[in-house]
């Protein structure tokens, strides 16, 4: 099983519960705004702590309230591509890319910096600062940074949001390639049905739940 999630979440005033398992290479998480899709990604990455429950990815338990397991984010192996890219503003693109690579065990690396640069076509951006990048460029760099950190799985939060059609199409085929060529379970949050139908092997629909 790639993703095995059963959590009770409380984020500020919003409470929700979510339970799903998936063994598709790419799982899509869909649902209306504010339902807790991003919070779910944050919980899987270890940036938010569920009230209770269990999170396992590719056979490894990341969180289990019954067993008292709660791995810190740096031990979870999440390659998290944030919706806002979240590049480090004081580091050039090249330094952003290798941030996680330097911290990863060499034998766990999936891909080299050169491969990432040519795959994402970001060679001309390496000397730039994140503030000078367009939204699409920043997102490609964020994907590269996540891939280079030797992740065990990928979390993609609305990777195509606010991109114009041609750029969205480029990124969509890129995600397809990653899905088919890398051995990485992927969990994608999306609003777009077209995107989800094309990419996902399994769709998890989140609906507004009243706390018990």
């Amino acid at each position: 099983m790639f993703f095995d999630v059963a959590i009770d979440m409380q984020v500020d005033d919003h409470a929700f519960a979510l339970e799903f398992t998936s063994d598709a290479k790419l799982t899509a998480l869909v649902g209306p705004s504010g339902v807790g899709k991003t919070s779910t990604l944050n919980a899987i990455a270890g940036l938010l702590c569920p009230q209770a429950g269990r999170i396992a990815v590719a056979g490894e338990i990341l969180f289990d309230s019954d067993q008292g397991i709660d791995l810190p984010p740096e031990k979870r192996g999440a390659g998290y591509v944030f919706q806002d890219a979240r590049l480090f503003p004081h580091r050039k693109v090249s330094a952003n890319l290798v941030y996680g690579e330097k911290l990863a065990a060499p034998d766990k690396r999936l891909i080299t910096t050169d491969e990432v640069v040519s795959l994402l076509e970001i060679g001309h951006l390496l000397d730039r600062l994140p503030a000078t990048l367009s939204g699409g460029e920043a997102r490609r760099v964020a994907i590269g940074r996540a891939l280079l950190s030797a992740p065990r799985f990928l979390l993609l939060d609305e990777p195509l949001a606010s991109l114009d059609e041609s750029r969205a199409e480029t990124l969509l085929s890129l995600i397809e390639r990653l899905r088919d060529e890398l051995d990485l379970p992927m969990l994608l949050v999306s609003h777009s049905t077209a995107e989800v139908e094309r990419l996902a092997g399994r769709v998890v629909e989140m609906t507004v739940t009243k706390p018990a």
Binding site: L47, Y80, G100, S149
Partner: peptide, 16 residues
């Protein structure tokens, strides 16, 4: 603070 969270998901300890 979300930048710190991003660094953690990339493998950085809180101190790093």
């Amino acid at each position: 603070r979300r930048l710190v969270g991003a660094a953690r998901t990339l493998g950085a300890s809180p101190w790093h």
